[in-house]
Write a protein that binds this DNA or RNA. Structure first.
Length: 918
RNA sequence: GGGCGAAUAGCGCAGUUGGUUCAGAGCAUCUGCCUUACAAGCAGAGGGUCGGGGGUUCGAAUCCCUCUUCGCCCACCA
């Protein structure tokens, strides 16, 4: 292979991904091995890769590749999601550009366009995943609206309906006026908003000058009390003509056309005089009753609440309780409806402006206050949602909460990080029914079929049957008295589609057709899946519901572990978004840094559950690491083997040491993986390769310039390289495959992907490793002296150990690395020598004329002062009788050792100072 | 309003049941090097009262209380 001094990822990545594909190395079939399964969180079918995907898919690929190398039958199933609202919106937008309105099309025509769009854009994101190196079993690629998945959805709907877990009802739902569909509670995002609280005048329907209901003691309204919610006496508003009125505070004056009552709290002293009265809705001039309910907060606004049952969840509840009419003043697109009587056809926000103006002009607006409140927005279209009374399909969720809560709380299913268990339980313990119907065409059409000929029946009372097909529905319908002769096509299918998540929650089952063919060999083998990797933002949308469906349909968990990733932010901590323009295109990054570099950049600072502040310099670091690996390989492959050469002692020692170090680090990495500490695992291997292997090991065994390397050392080095590549492979699949293939001739179809890593970890010689730390200390000591004294590495030095030299066994390595002509143990140290300590052993390097006595003395004196201080603190501890009495023996013994070490160090420092001072 | 989490070096983080070098690694910074694998590099160095205060203990980054500041999730005060 070519040996450019810089690694060029583009060459390598395309070549080896194709190799993996050609040899079907990602494919998985059930066999005798332990399965390891991940189902991809399906991205939107028409979406494109963003940084969040890069993080998420990289983690999954790392886990899958690691499992594969651990000998498991790894299966990563890819697929896409039809994303009904988002996709339908995009299709509508494109149609609009062509001058076509959705309302001009039939359902069939619209779906044709939608499928065309899907075929055109679908799968782009899956292609992009290949650039990233994802080892998905592409033959299994699925789509939430493909045949198998669609049938599963319909079958489950019918089954849940038959079980009584799905119902149809008229409820207050979240309405998206832009897309004109209902949404689930989870699809509403609340934003703080600066708005206004409008105080409106509702005249009492009575003659001017009336006084009934007024208490004798509190007849006079003091102006300063007019809007004080805390006063404990009546507040009576009267205009110049002596007419009394109530004041109602609202943030939504445009809904007064739907007002059907005004509510006060029976315990509110301010408003007792309003009891039993009727008031006139401003501008509308409808006379509505005053009702009383404890729900009203006495201290909010004036304590008077306008009741608009059609447009507020709480008002709806009040309406139900007091049997009030609901006047829906909005059209589905949130313009004012005919029912409002005034402002008909106007947009809701334009109407608000206009009505405030008109109220002011009519002297019906008392005052306006600034007010911060929360407004719900549609997650998909980002327009304010409108609470709206409508007929929808719901799932009874209590049943599902009951089966899904325990396995997470008792860790049958483990969450990483575990703090999300709280979030999970909190939601399940306050579960609300799930609105699953959407007024959309792109999605799974609800398999409910209405009977014809139901004139005079209210919409919510229409009779219907639920069945998987029209034919089956008709059969059911014909059993109903009066419909025995019904033809199939007389049934009218519900126009709505199902919430996208109603298909997603079946994903881990439906991918293996566990709904359609329960107990088939695939579902039996791959289910439950192993790990789920996803963001915490869809813990309710998806994770919780998959757990529910898993237990309902498989009687078992859908996955064993859930790894929650953080949110990818920019380095200023802002969420990445198109509108901010702070989100780099992952493909550009891959072009610049290589897929391996980007993967590593992503993983370098991504501990589970923590948001990651993405910075391109991390990819640069990743690329640099790739380059390091590349160049280490160039070095090793550049050596020529000298069959005659004997193995130098330094090399033999280095090989023994690095073998132990490798074993130890492999064990650490295994532990990190077991705890899903993936960035820690990466950091371990990073240090092992860069510091231990490249900076230490390779320097130790490197032959002298122009010389060959002995065969034994060369073989050992290649072996180490192979093992390192294996450990690196899950993180950086491309470069590791390329280099592994280049280490020696491989058989066709062979790949690093399947090389075992299990045996790498094991017992290791801790003593040897810690001995080597001392060796490194000695070498670093000499290097420091060279740097300080400006002595070139080429110039040999001598080293003296004072008294003892515990690392003597490694002299060959020390001499080579530090370029020493001799290492001796002496009691009489040379004059004019520079001193350093490694542990408790003192070393000196005689420098003769190069010696700067002044500087050396200062260094020694400083160190002596520090050591004496340290000794003092140790003695203080040991002098404490309580410490000696209570602390464990080992701890006390350690303090005594510190004492002895410090004392001996002080002695040798003093001696050194004395000899220098002569 | 309720709940959860966080605060450790310039930055983003690790620190497992309080006690071996526990005050850490990475990046950044500084110094010296184009040494024949790599300047996308090599060798070295500096840098933190572990958010403030109090407590428990022989001993606290670690446990308890409190305050401050941030973040996230949930919730029907219009």
């Amino acid at each position: 292979m070519e040996l450019a001094s810089k690694y060029n990822p583009a060459d390598v990545e395309a070549k080896w991904y194709q190799y993996w594909l050609d040899n079907k190395l990602f494919s998985s079939k059930p066999d005798g091995r332990e399965p390891y399964t991940i189902v991809i969180p399906p991205p939107n079918v028409t979406g494109v890769l963003h940084m969040g995907h890069v993080l998420n898919e990289t983690i999954q690929d790392i886990l899958v590749r690691r499992a594969r190398m651990e000998g498991k039958n790894a299966c990563w199933v890819p697929g896409t999601d039809h994303a009904s609202i988002a996709t339908e919106a995009k299709v509508i937008k494109r149609l609009a550009e062509q001058g076509i309105k959705k309302s001009d099309l039939t359902r069939e025509e619209f779906l044709k366009h939608a499928w065309a769009w899907t075929d055109e854009h679908g799968g782009i994101i899956l292609k992009q995943l290949r650039r990233l190196g994802c080892s998905c079993d592409w033959d299994r690629t699925s789509f939430t609206m493909d045949d198998t998945r669609s049938k599963s959805v319909i079958k489950v709907f019918c089954d849940l309906y038959d079980k009584g877990l799905i119902y149809r009802g008229l409820r207050m739902v979240n309405w998206d006026p832009e897309r004109q569909t209902a949404l689930s509670d989870e699809e509403v995002i609340y934003h703080d908003e600066h708005s206004h609280l409008f105080y409106l005048r509702y005249y009492v329907d009575e003659p001017a000058g009336s006084t009934d209901g007024e208490e004798p003691d509190a007849q006079v309204l003091r102006p300063e009390d007019a809007f004080d919610p805390t006063v404990k006496h009546q507040i009576i508003h009267r205009d110049e003509q002596g007419r009394r009125y109530a004041v109602v505070a609202t943030t939504r004056p445009e809904t007064i056309m739907g007002d059907i009552a005004v509510c006060i709290n029976p315990k509110d002293p301010k408003n007792t005089w309003l009891r039993g009265k009727r008031v006139i809705v401003p501008l509308v001039n409808r006379v509505v009753p005053i009702i009383e309910d404890r729900y009203v907060e006495i201290e909010f606004g004036t304590g008077c609440l306008k009741v608009t049952p059609a447009h507020d969840v709480n008002d709806y509840a009040l309406g139900q309780k007091y049997n009030l009419e609901a006047i829906d003043i909005f059209n589905p697109d949130a313009t004012i409806s005919d029912a409002a009587g005034i402002y008909v056809g106007m947009d809701r926000f334009d109407c608000r402006k206009q009505i405030v103006e008109d109220l002011g002009a009519a002297a019906l607006l008392e005052k306006v206050e600034d007010y911060d409140n929360k407004v719900g927005y549609s997650e998909r279209t980002n327009v304010p949602i409108e609470p709206r009374l409508s007929l929808q399909w719901f799932i009874h969720m209590q049943h599902f909460a009951d089966i899904a809560l325990p396995p997470v709380m008792n860790d049958d299913i483990r969450f990483f990080p575990p703090k999300y268990k709280n979030t999970y339980s909190n939601w399940l313990e306050n579960i609300k029914d799930w609105c699953i119907s959407r007024q959309l065409w792109w999605g799974h059409r609800i398999p409910a079929y209405f009977l014809p000929r139901q004139e005079g029946v209210k919409e919510e009372d229409r009779r219907y049957v639920v069945a998987e097909t029209r034919e089956q529905a008709a059969e059911k319908a014909r059993l109903i008295p009066g419909y025995e002769t019904l033809a199939d096509d007389e049934l009218i299918q519900d126009e709505g589609a199902l919430d996208t998540w109603f298909s997603s929650w079946l994903w881990p089952i439906s991918l293996f057709d566990g709904i359609g063919k329960p107990g088939n060999s695939e579902i039996s083998y791959y289910y439950p899946t192993s790990d789920l990797v996803t963001g915490p933002d869809i813990i309710f949308f998806w994770v919780a519901r998959m757990i529910m469906a898993g237990y309902e349909y498989m009687g078992d968990m859908p996955f064993k572990n859930v790894y929650f990733t953080g949110i990818v932010r920019d380095k200023l901590g802002r969420k990445m978004s198109k509108s901010l323009g702070n989100s780099p295109d992952p493909l550009d990054l891959i072009d610049t840094y290589g897929a391996d570099g980007v993967r590593m950049g992503m993983m370098l600072s991504a501990p589970a559950g923590n948001d990651i502040l993405f910075d391109e310099s991390l990819c640069e670091q990743g690329r640099n690491f790739n380059n390091k690996i590349w160049n280490a390989f160039r070095l090793v492959k550049g050596w020529t083997v000298d069959e005659e050469a004997a193995q130098p002692e330094a090399s033999a020692t280095a090989i023994r040491w690095f073998g132990e170090k490798l074993t130890k680090t492999a064990a650490e990495i295994e532990d990190h993986f077991r705890k899903y500490r993936i960035s820690d695992a990466l950091m371990s291997i990073y240090n092992l390769f860069w510091d231990e292997f490249s900076a230490w090991y390779l320097e130790m065994v490197k032959p002298a310039f122009g010389k060959g390397i002995d065969a034994a050392t060369y073989k050992a080095t290649l072996h180490f390289f192979d093992m390192l590549l294996r450990l690196l492979h899950p993180f950086m699949p491309f470069i590791t495959e390329a280099l592994w293939q280049a280490i020696e001739e491989r058989k066709p179809g062979e790949s690093i992907m399947f090389q075992p890593v299990k045996d790498l970890a094991g017992d290791y010689d801790a003593q040897l490793i810690s001995d080597f730390d001392a060796v490194k200390g000695i070498i670093a000591g000499v290097r420091t002296i060279r740097l300080q004294k400006n002595i070139a590495q080429k110039e040999p030095l001598t080293l003296e150990a004072i008294g003892t030299h515990p690392a003597a066994a490694y002299d060959a390595v020390i001499a080579k690395m530090a370029n020493l002509s001799s290492i001796t143990v002496t009691n009489e140290k040379s004059p004019a020598a520079v001193n350093f300590m490694v542990g408790t052993t003192e070393y000196t390097v005689p420098l003769g004329g190069l010696m700067d006595v002044e500087a050396e003395l200062k260094k020694l004196t400083d160190e002596l002062a520090y050591t004496e201080g340290f000794l003092q603190s140790v003695m203080k501890k040991l002098g404490n009788a309580n410490f000696v009495a209570h602390a464990p023996e080992a701890v006390v013994a350690n303090e005594r050792k510190k004492q002895a070490d410090a004392e001996s160090k002080i002695a040798s420092l003093k001696a050194a100072i004395e000899s220098l001072s002569k």
